[in-house]
């Protein structure tokens, strides 16, 4: 079998103008500039509209007096499939059970949201939030104070009007 080779005819250098191609390219650019159906989000000036069930880094809810809502029941470290929550319970000066140590390793976390689902007092939440950049890795282990400082919106794991997805 013989092999047929198609020879491409190329314009000779020096004898070719790129003007037409440039203009058609620019025309496309300007068309997009005024096109109402544009898709590019002007981040960071514009905020992304995250889905209600987006699951990002955690946040701990606090009582009005600033105490964490967590009662150190131990269900979240038990249910956590990635084993990323470290919890040591204790008793505060008012006799309430509270977390002496509560740490979440956000690198290890797989953002399944089961900690929020299992929490009996609605203390730990995953957040609708994605801006987590840090300069060092150790900043990704969020301790209790850090979790309580977070103020981003929390995730709706289910639609309250249809909790069983029926």
């Amino acid at each position: 079998m013989t092999i047929s080779v198609k020879m491409m005819r190329r314009p000779e250098p020096e004898k070719n103008s790129y003007l037409r191609a440039t203009l058609s390219g620019m025309a496309l650019t300007f068309r997009h500039l005024v096109n109402p159906a544009k898709v590019t989000l002007q981040y960071p000036e514009e905020e992304a509209d995250l889905h209600a069930r987006w699951r990002g880094t955690h946040r701990m809810e606090v009582h009005a007096d600033g105490r964490p809502k967590c009662v150190a029941c131990g269900l979240c470290p038990t249910v956590c499939p990635a084993n990323c929550i470290r919890l040591v319970g204790g008793e505060d000066d008012q006799g309430n059970r509270y977390p002496v140590v509560y740490e979440i390793d956000e690198f290890r976390c797989i953002f399944c949201g089961m900690c929020q689902e299992v929490c009996p007092v609605e203390a730990i939440h995953v957040g609708r939030h994605f801006e987590n950049a840090e300069y060092t890795r150790d900043r990704f282990v969020y301790d209790l104070d850090r979790l309580m400082e977070q103020d981003h919106p929390t995730t709706l794991l289910w639609d309250p009007s249809d909790p069983r997805s029926e």
Partner: peptide, 8 residues
């Protein structure tokens, strides 16, 4: 109060 009960 199972979440805060030691017997849980």
């Amino acid at each position: 109060d199972c979440p805060i009960c030691d017997m849980s």
